[in-house]
Design a protein around this nucleic acid. Structure first.
Lengths: 339, 339
DNA sequence: TTCCGTTCCGCAAAGCTTTGCGCAAAGCTT
DNA sequence: AAGCTTTGCGCAAAGCTTTGCGGAACGGAA
């Protein structure tokens, strides 16, 4: 193979000194004479020595790996969050192990176990859509495993979390619709157990109230966040005797699916139907009409989540709840008055 | 902390037997009596014992980790490939460590070093756009580190690779344009050092020839695969005295950027300008008009790349070159005759 | 010359697992 | 009853690193 890395032992043998001497020389221990130190360092460079992280891990009882679990890997939203996590992890000399739950509570549990078996030092998790039982998280807590939730969270107060200001954002959207002249504003939400569903729904209702609009249960739809399910939800809205004139979707996927359904139904956006989504920068500008949306600070969300993790393991900081502010970026899909 | 995992030693102490007995009992070694085996297994279950991968790695000289380097993390294309890699890795009990080169040759090198330091057993790489020097890859080869390239490759023959059939795909696109009645077909390519640029360019030219169209150098543009650079390339094409009536972009990002530029220029797709991209399923249907495109089998590409890696480490298979067939999916953006 | 203090380095343990070998006790044969 | 095999388990090494402690050699001082 030749595949073997050079070890301290190799260097020691070649220099005819003991392993401890080599180790100390490389770490600038004062017990080692300057000449010896230089000799060792030179050879180490030549042989491209780098300490074996397995041995170090065993010794120090740390793996410098953290586990990240997201509902899926292929959505830009999560990819971007992961990117943020990775940026801080890299600075700290940590690697991240990524697993996807595929929105399944079962797979989420499985991934947690796998990552634990791999000896990650902590877990950063975005809940799967299905997750209702929080027992496995409480288990982790009891075992003292650092845990951070982002975007979709639970057990707030006990566990550090970072989310967007969902209620405020949903309120912004509703008021924006109102200002643009829309009066029957619908909301396509997600599963009730998700905090993002609940918070955005609450913000939506608060927004309606602020505008003196009634809350019409007919205008509140649910879907399971899949493309098809979102289209069906929109389809139901369109079949209403008194259909909405504006709708906002709870996330990227939903917004795009809704857009398609509206178009196929022969309605024009924004003239016949206003549309606003929750998404990150990238996708919103690709579609036509460009999507007015709440832009998530995804990269920052990831980075903050990582920060919370390191705060925990470095300073044993108490669980903090970070709420990131969002921006309503007005584009074409809600500009009723501009066309 | 309590954060410690139970070890064989813990089990051994609790059962008043030796560590080796515990180890053998768990591995069903015949030397151990059935009663002892059961007793050990029960306690192991109770204490949730799982072997320490660091210790195992040290012993067996394997980490069960593989490194993956992609040009970026946030593009659906790579995310989907990674998803494919992960699916096989998971089956084989391997974890993947993901790094992004950000299209920089420097960062690519850096990532390789980092992953090597982390003791990955092999590397699956999609070249950065900048990479011209292949020295560091040859180094890996000499050291006997399993290496697989996907999508953007080099050193073919020496290293296992999996790519799309780029030339054939580009030919298909060109002929499709011709059949739709387009006659001045432009191609926006990427950096010359990338095989995907060269192969698609070759296929483009061959396609023109097959249709008895001349190869006009004016119609061949290059960009650095960024959004802005692609738009500028398209802008140059539009300013030509004799501009194209169809264009195909070398990848997702380019295709979308081109689409925007065309629209902002006041041209209609597909009537005034045909457009075809190289992309995966997801994005093509989100934009309007829906994008005719060569769909990459991204997930499969990732999975195949992982297969080649395991072939190498399990059977020491010689470097294979896998070429995946693509599909031309005709949608709206090139349907000149249907509107 | 003897003793003490530096200076510089090696031994060994710990962290966890697997496995070849050795060893004791029990069971069997003659 | 003596000698053999089998059964069931423990010792120790190897894989790699760090670090407390012990120790040799050498210098200087008395």
């Amino acid at each position: 193979m030749g595949n073997r890395h050079t070890s301290l032992k190799d260097l020691a043998r070649e220099l005819n000194v003991s392993i401890s001497t080599v180790s100390r020389a490389l770490r600038n221990h004062p017990d080692i004479s300057p000449e010896m130190r230089e000799k060792v360092k030179q050879l180490a460079n030549l042989r491209k020595y780098s300490p074996n992280p397995l041995a170090m891990g065993l010794l120090k009882q740390e793996t410098r790996m953290i586990g990240v679990i997201v509902p899926d890997l292929v959505t830009h939203f999560y990819a971007s969050i992961i990117s943020g996590i990775e940026s801080l992890a890299k600075e700290k000399g940590y690697f991240i192990l990524i697993a996807s739950s595929n929105e399944s509570a079962e797979k989420e549990k499985e991934s947690i176990e796998n990552l634990r078996k791999a000896r990650v030092e902590g877990l950063l998790i975005c809940l799967s859509q299905e997750t209702t039982d929080t027992g496995h998280f409480e288990n982790l807590l009891e075992q003292g495993i650092p845990l951070v939730f982002f975007d979709r969270v639970c057990l707030q107060g006990q566990i550090p979390t970072v989310t967007a200001d969902n209620a405020e954002a949903a309120g912004k959207i509703t008021r924006h619709f109102y200002e643009q002249g829309y009066r029957r504003i619908a909301f396509i939400s997600g599963p009730e157990q998700l905090n993002i569903s609940r918070e955005r729904l609450a913000g939506y209702k608060a927004g309606l109230e602020a505008c003196n609009l009634p809350v019409d249960p007919d205008l509140i739809e649910r879907c399971n966040l899949s493309h098809d399910s979102a289209r069906q939800a929109m389809s139901r809205l369109l079949k209403l005797p008194n259909p909405p004139d504006a709708v906002f979707g709870i996330n990227d996927t939903v917004a795009f699916a809704v857009m398609k359904e509206i178009k196929e139904h022969g309605l024009r956006i924004p003239r016949d139907m206003g549309l606003v989504g929750f998404t990150d920068e990238f996708h919103a500008t690709v579609v036509e009409p460009q999507l007015t949306s709440i832009t998530h600070p995804t990269f920052e969300m990831g980075r903050k989540a990582a920060e919370l993790f390191f705060d925990k393991i470095e300073k044993n900081a108490p669980p903090e709840t970070i709420i990131l502010q969002t921006k309503l970026v007005v584009r074409e899909s809600s500009a009723k008055h501009s066309d």
